[in-house]
């Protein structure tokens, strides 16, 4: 028998959640999206995923060790000398986390929204839009985390993490990836053409180059500094660099708060947009 006369498992599972708050948008099964991601990844092209990891590594080699030879040492916030490679390594770690999260939460989400159309099918099951948002964002953040762990595996043996606080760079990278994944998916849900998607790159490249990644923002006039400091990558770079150089102060919590707002806001907008797109 394909169906049973009795109430099915699926109904019993759904009925149990009846009185939960937000039951209409959240079923508590975002992890099923991750499971789907694992099945999809098994038969996808791993070279594409691996190539994304190398980008910041190449920057580290070219700038840290190449141009770094010409620059010599800098001084950190506490006035201690620091090699140029150790100065940019944390910034590239933050960038790794961002890149991984952005690949999946923008282009891949765009494709699923407009060509794969898989969210529509998910939302015809008893999943809610918050499950889909949380699942996809978590999947994207995992890619960011994998990239940043890979990057750590290269910079730690090279002695570019000079302080024990540097271990906290891993949770910090997770937070950064989470923020970008959440914000990335939210913004992608508003895009409906490739041209709009290309604006993302137009925005991401200058943010990567000028967020205190390769030189301190103090070289800019005051008004430009204010703009840069409002950008998420600068917040991430500052957070990770302070940790790897062991410059610990309460101000770091401000960066953390910035990403928490990004995560919560992004997730809220994504949920609202999924409802508007597929449940209207």
């Amino acid at each position: 028998m394909i169906t049973q006369a009795l109430v099915s498992q699926a109904v019993l599972i759904a009925e149990k959640r009846r009185n939960n708050p937000a039951a209409s948008v959240y079923s508590g099964r975002a992890r099923m999206m991750l499971e789907r991601g694992v099945y999809a990844a098994k038969s996808s092209n791993w070279l594409v995923i691996v190539s994304g990891f190398f980008e910041p590594v190449f920057y580290l080699l070219a700038f840290g060790f190449g141009i770094g030879q010409l620059i010599g040492n800098l001084t950190d916030g506490n006035g201690n000398p620091v090699t140029y490679a150790a100065f940019i390594a944390p910034a590239l770690l933050a960038t790794s986390a961002m890149n991984g999260a952005i690949y999946d939460s923008t282009w891949n989400v765009f494709f699923k929204l407009h060509f794969g159309k898989i969210y529509q099918v998910m939302l015809s099951s008893s999943l809610g839009p918050l499950d889909v948002a949380l699942g996809e964002i978590t999947w994207a953040l995992l890619r960011g985390l994998v990239y940043s762990l890979g990057f750590m595996a290269i910079v730690v043996p090279l002695g570019l993490i000079t302080d024990a606080w540097g271990l906290l760079a891993i949770p910090a990278a997770t937070l950064i990836a989470f923020g970008f994944a959440s914000f990335g998916m939210a913004i992608t849900s508003y895009f409906h053409s490739f041209q709009q998607m290309n604006w993302l790159n137009f925005f991401l490249l200058p943010m990567f180059l000028f967020s205190g990644t390769f030189f301190p923002v103090s070289v800019f006039p005051q008004w430009i500094q204010v703009i840069v400091q409002a950008l998420p990558l600068w917040q991430g770079v500052e957070l990770v660099r302070s940790l790897t150089l062991g410059i610990i102060h309460w101000g770091l919590l401000g960066h953390v708060a910035y990403f928490v707002v990004m995560i919560v806001g992004g997730m809220w907008f994504t949920t609202v947009r999924l409802r508007a797109l597929f449940m209207r």
Binding site: A10, M32, Y39, S43, I118
Partner: peptide, 20 residues
């Protein structure tokens, strides 16, 4: 609206997982 990144059996399996 099949999940084109997945195999035939995975399409049924993952959809079942969405229901828990």
């Amino acid at each position: 609206l099949l999940d084109r990144e997945l195999k035939v059996w995975e399409n049924i399996f993952t959809y079942g997982r969405y229901f828990g």
